[in-house]
């Protein structure tokens, strides 16, 4: 039985706790810099402070979906196939959906004071909303029935398809004429249009949200692993109940085989 291994988090309890503390510290520092130390923007005034959350949230969403893609490739590749990668992909996608939702909501709160509208049907906004629903759909797909291996492969392939939208979102502001501004740091000229304390605060935001992502991924992964473990035990119990108190060897074999099939090939 591999249940024990799959009950642990990704990072191990000590590293996970340290990450939690570091994340909290970085977020507190971000609040101080974002709301108090960074000066208001020349043109947008205080409304520009929303940028210190909006951009890092979008970055964290890209990162989360990138990890989902990587884990899905490792799951599909027969040599590295392991339930661990399937669970990492699922956990990361859920965290990514949270960050994408935040990106959209923060963008809307920023757009109202500076553009004058909550939403624009421009290419950046539409492709980002599509990204949200792509991965929400992916999370639903993960819950559809099947053996662990068929569910895992199905989800991994869907994850690879969904990721196509990530570069489309990022480059939409260069490919099409949009109301949304171009990237401030990773623009085509790679010439950052922000400096000094404002730039530092933006990078602090990226660091804080990266740590937040890692912490959430670890916690969400552990919950997913625990759930998977419980489902496996419930299935075994159900099979044992149906087969009845027959020869112990027979029931044990059946349960073992099914559990193995559900868990996929474990390393």
């Amino acid at each position: 039985m591999t249940g024990g291994a799959r009950r642990a988090g990704l990072l191990g309890p000590r590293v996970s706790a340290t990450t939690g503390v570091a994340t909290a510290a970085a977020l507190v520092a971000l609040v101080v810099f974002g709301l108090a130390i960074a000066p208001p923007d020349e043109i947008q005034g205080d409304a520009q402070r929303i940028m210190y959350l909006h951009v890092p949230a979008a970055w964290a969403a890209y990162l989360a979906f990138g990890i989902t893609t990587l884990a899905s490739i490792l799951y599909l590749w027969p040599r590295t196939r392991s339930i661990v990668w399937d669970l990492v992909a699922g956990a990361s996608a859920e965290v990514g959906v949270v960050f994408t939702g935040l990106t959209l909501a923060l963008g809307s709160l920023w757009a109202r004071p500076v553009w004058g509208i909550w939403w624009a049907w421009d290419a950046r906004l539409v492709t980002t909303a599509v990204l949200f629903f792509l991965y929400l759909g992916y999370l639903s797909l993960r819950r559809l029935p099947g053996t662990a291996e068929s569910r895992g492969k199905r989800a991994a392939i869907a994850a690879l398809i969904a990721f196509i939208d990530v570069p489309v979102v990022h480059f939409s502001v260069n490919w099409w004429r949009t109301l949304h501004q171009q990237a401030t740091v990773f623009n085509p000229e790679l010439d950052p249009q922000i400096h000094g304390v404002m730039a530092f605060t933006l990078w602090l935001g990226v660091l804080a949200f990266t740590l937040t992502y890692v912490y959430l991924l670890d916690r969400r992964y552990r919950l997913l692993a625990l759930d998977e473990d419980r489902e496996e035990r419930e299935l075994e119990a159900a099979i044992r109940a149906r087969v009845g108190p027959g020869p112990a060897g027979g029931a044990g074999t059946t349960a073992g085989t099914t559990a193995g099939a559900r868990a996929g090939v474990t390393p």
Binding site: V114, W115, A120, Q182
Partner: peptide
């Protein structure tokens, strides 16, 4: 009947 301000990607401290 509607004006949207098309902000750029440059930020600098308020003078």
């Amino acid at each position: 009947d509607r004006i949207l301000i098309n902000h750029g990607n440059e930020y600098e401290p308020e003078r």
